[in-house]
């Protein structure tokens, strides 16, 4: 069967799409910002990935939607939660993965998986958005940085300050207060990263920390966060430049299984 499959991941801030060839080679991918019209954004994400793959719509046999906006992927044949998708995607990129950590814009997940990439157990941030990507976003903003800059800056810290507030809104005032007390922004950033690493570890311990650990989601592109997690965990953390696409990739893989009559 010469089937091309696609996965569309509609997150809270970005839409991602991955187009997979029959040998599970990535033929094309796309990343775009989500706006007010999610249905259209999903369409666009697919079109962009198809353009990247030099393919046209009829050549795709199966489309899977995932992410918060998964039910808006009207043109798809299957919806799967991003938890199952991240599990499958991490297994694909790093087959030894047993624990997936995904820090996204709105939530953080720790997913324990087996050797086939099936979810064994998972835990997500409770109660509120404490410790999510949004936390970094807001604090970067309060310090006057772009969220892309803060990871490398945090690595230059000499002495991380202690950030205790887990509430995103209050962390912002905590950050502002440190600034007014003359603390080095780098040290504050290091403190913020350490604080998220700590919250994340707490989630990971709920499902059990077991190597290999694969770090995914938007925040995984932040090297300061990778460093902070590694330091807190004491074991290396797999990170791939494709991490952001893991949900979409996992969705495509789920679609392929479904198409071939597999477990999905």
């Amino acid at each position: 069967m010469t089937a091309v499959v696609a996965g569309v991941d509609i997150g809270s801030t970005t839409a991602k799409c991955v187009v997979l060839g029959e040998d599970s080679r990535i033929l094309g991918k796309s990343l775009s910002v989500v706006g007010v019209d999610i249905v259209k954004d999903a369409e666009r994400a697919l079109e962009a990935a198809l353009a990247d793959a030099h393919l046209s719509r009829p050549e795709v046999s199966f489309i899977t939607g995932t992410g918060y906006g998964r039910y808006k992927v009207y043109f798809g044949q299957l919806v799967v939660t991003e938890i199952s998708c991240h599990a499958r995607g991490a297994n694909f990129l790093f087959p030894g993965t047993r624990l997936v950590v995904d820090i996204g814009g709105q939530d953080t997940k720790a997913i324990r998986i087996d050797d086939k990439g099936e979810v064994v157990d998972f835990a997500m941030n409770d109660k509120c958005a404490a410790g999510t990507g949004r936390f970094l976003d807001v604090c970067a903003n309060a310090l006057g940085y772009d969220v892309g800059e803060i990871g490398p800056l945090s690595l230059q810290a000499r002495r991380a300050v202690k950030v205790t507030s887990t509430c995103t809104v209050f962390a912002e005032s905590e950050v502002t207060s440190y600034v007014s007390r003359g603390k080095d922004p780098k040290d504050i950033l290091a403190g913020l990263h350490a604080s998220i690493a700590n919250r994340t570890l707490s989630l990971m311990q709920r499902v059990g920390v077991e190597p290999e650990v694969t770090f995914t989601g938007g925040v995984s592109q932040n090297e300061g966060m990778v460093h902070a997690l590694h330091r807190r965990l004491g074991v290396p953390v797999n990170v791939s430049p494709l991490s952001q696409y893991l949900g979409a990739l996992g969705a495509a893989l789920h679609g392929r299984e479904r198409l071939s009559g597999g477990a999905a």
Binding site: T81, I83, S84, D107, E118, F122
Partner: peptide, 19 residues
């Protein structure tokens, strides 16, 4: 948020059962 967790939970149960 709750729906997402419930979906993921039952999805994984279903997957494991299928496997």
């Amino acid at each position: 948020q709750i729906k997402n967790r419930m979906d993921a939970f039952f999805e994984s149960l279903e997957q494991r059962r299928a496997v």
